[in-house]
Each structure stands twice: as structure tokens, then as C-alpha cells.
Amino acid sequence: MDTEKCLNYQKQFFIDFAQAWHDRSDLELYRKIDTTASSLRLETSEVPAYILAYDKQAQAELKAYLQKGLTKWLRTYIPFFEINSEGVVMFGDWYHRRQFGVLDVWNRQIIQTDELQQQILPELEGYEKDNDNYLQNRLDQLHEQLYQEANELHADLDRATENADSAVAQSRLNRDKAPQQNSGRLKNLLNFMDSNSGNEETNDSEAATPAPNTAEIADLKTRFTAAKQLADTHYDEQKRQLEVEVAVIRYEYQAIVNQYSSLTQFENALVHIQESYLDNLQVAPNLASKGDDQHA
């Protein structure tokens, strides 16, 4: 394309875009944004700045207009989502509701910007797999996590106590064997050498038996008691919080299955927001300005 043709193309593009804005045609505005992104290999979010000469006020005006139409449509497409003027998408209208994401007006998507938002769908998937036992499974996981240190100390205490009991039992066994080896004065006399040897073995055996480490056991008991008390406190606190979280997940799931045949269908609807919205604009190209008395 030579220079003149290129300039004419650019001129016609801006004339068409200006007409689409004058007509408040959401459909044509989005079509031209998408076409420009494709032809110039730009991110869709970069195109409005390019078209509007990087004027911040003009970009904000265009975004606010297009967001108005997209929000109207989303209220029917996903009716349990609430979207404020800042594009924040909230899941439901119940107490402790969660932020699902933020509206991306240029790309016509809902994006999840942090870990809390990104874990909503996986949690719903987990709930769908076993909703009857979901709460108890989460509580079991929490218990295992919080009581890990206490359980390890308890195991150490059991081992130390068992070793101490074994040491005491061995010591008693050694003492019980000693009189049998010294019975009979005559036998001792006749087996003088053997008896001395046996006594030496007994003494060696007794010396080899370690004394119970009572200090270690007392220390383990103290540490175990403290760890368990701390785990009890944290578990009681977090159990209530987890019960509330699971109740919210239950509300969310129920809202989804009341509107869609399954969680999978809902996830599919999220993925295809852009295509579905453009299909809707084929029927109602002026959705944002529909119902307005005059153009902004």
C-alpha cells in the first residue's frame, strides 16, 4: 500500500470510528477496536489509546460508555453477578459475598486479579464433587495442618516413655537373674570361676542398661501441652471462619445451578463472554445508550 492509500485508509477508519461513536453503536465500536488490534498486532487494551491519540479523558469516556452496555448485558447473562461503576464484579448479594473479579471492558472479559479470586472456581469444583462431605473434609485438612507439631511431639513423647519403660523392665529383669546365679554355697564354691564370670556379665548387662531420661520426658510433656493448647485455640477460631466460607461456597454453587445446568456450563459461559456479547450486539447494537433520552 503506497503512502496516499495508507493515509486514505487511516482517514476513512477515523471517519468510520467517529460515525460509530456518533451513532453510539457498541457493535461497530468494538468491531473497529478488534480490527485495529488484529491489523496492527496490538493488545486490544492498547487500541483505544492509539485511536484516541492517547488522550486520557477521551479513553475514560469511551470506556465508561462501553462498560455501561456490557454491564447491562451481564446482568441478564449472569444475573447473580453484581457490577459497580468501577467494574468490580461481586458474586451474589448475600452476607460475606466474595469479589469474583474485575470487568475488562476492552476485552469483554471478567479477569481475576488475585489468588483469592482465582481459587473461587477450584473451590466450587471441589464442592460439586462431594458437597455432602466438603465441609468435613476441609475441617479434617485444617485439623491436620494445625495439629502437626502437637502430633509430632506426642509421637516423640510416646517413644521416650516406651524407651524409659523398657529400660526399667530390663533393669528389673537383670536384678531378678542375680539371686539365681548365686544359689547354693557349695555350688558357688565348685563353680567359683564360672560364677565370677557370670557376675561380671550381669554387671556388664546392668551397666549397659540406660537409666530413664525423666528430664527429656518432662520437657516433651511441657512442649506437647503447649503445642496442643495453641492448636486448640487456632482450630476453634479457624473452624468458625471455615464454616462461613463453606456456607458462601454453598450459596454460590446454588446460584449457579439455579441458572445453568451445571458448573461446567457456567465456566463455559465465562470463557465465551466476548463472543456471546458480540452476538447480542448484532441484535441490539446500541445497548449502552438504549433507554437514554439523549447521547452523552
Rank of each mutant, 00 (worst) to 15 (best):
L7H: 00
L7G: 01
L7I: 11
K11W: 09
A20L: 11
W21I: 14
L27Q: 09
L29H: 00
D34I: 01
R41D: 14
E46Q: 08
V47P: 02
Y50M: 09
Y50W: 13
A53D: 10
K56Y: 07
K56V: 12
A58D: 04
A60F: 15
A60G: 05
E61H: 13
Y65N: 11
L70H: 12
L70F: 14
P79L: 11
E86R: 04
E86Y: 12
G92T: 09
W94C: 12
Q99C: 10
V102A: 14
R108C: 07
Q109P: 02
I110D: 02
I110K: 01
Q112S: 08
T113C: 12
D114T: 04
Q118V: 08
Q119C: 07
Q119N: 10
L124A: 09
E125A: 13
N131K: 04
Y134G: 01
Q136L: 10
R138F: 10
L139T: 02
D140T: 08
H143Q: 14
E149T: 13
H154T: 11
H154D: 14
A155K: 06
A160F: 11
A160E: 04
A164P: 01
A167P: 00
A167F: 15
Q170E: 15
R175E: 13
Q181R: 14
R185A: 10
L186V: 11
L190Y: 06
L190K: 05
G198S: 12
E201K: 02
N203A: 15
D204Q: 15
P210F: 10
A211G: 06
N213F: 12
A215W: 01
A218H: 05
A227E: 10
Q229W: 03
L230K: 10
D232T: 03
D236T: 09
Q238M: 05
K239E: 13
E243C: 04
V248D: 10
V248S: 03
N258S: 15
N258E: 14
Y260I: 06
S261Y: 11
L263Q: 00
F266P: 03
N268A: 07
L270I: 02
Q274R: 14
S276E: 15
S276C: 06
L278F: 08
Q282S: 03
N286M: 13
A288S: 09
S289K: 04
Q294S: 13
Q294M: 09
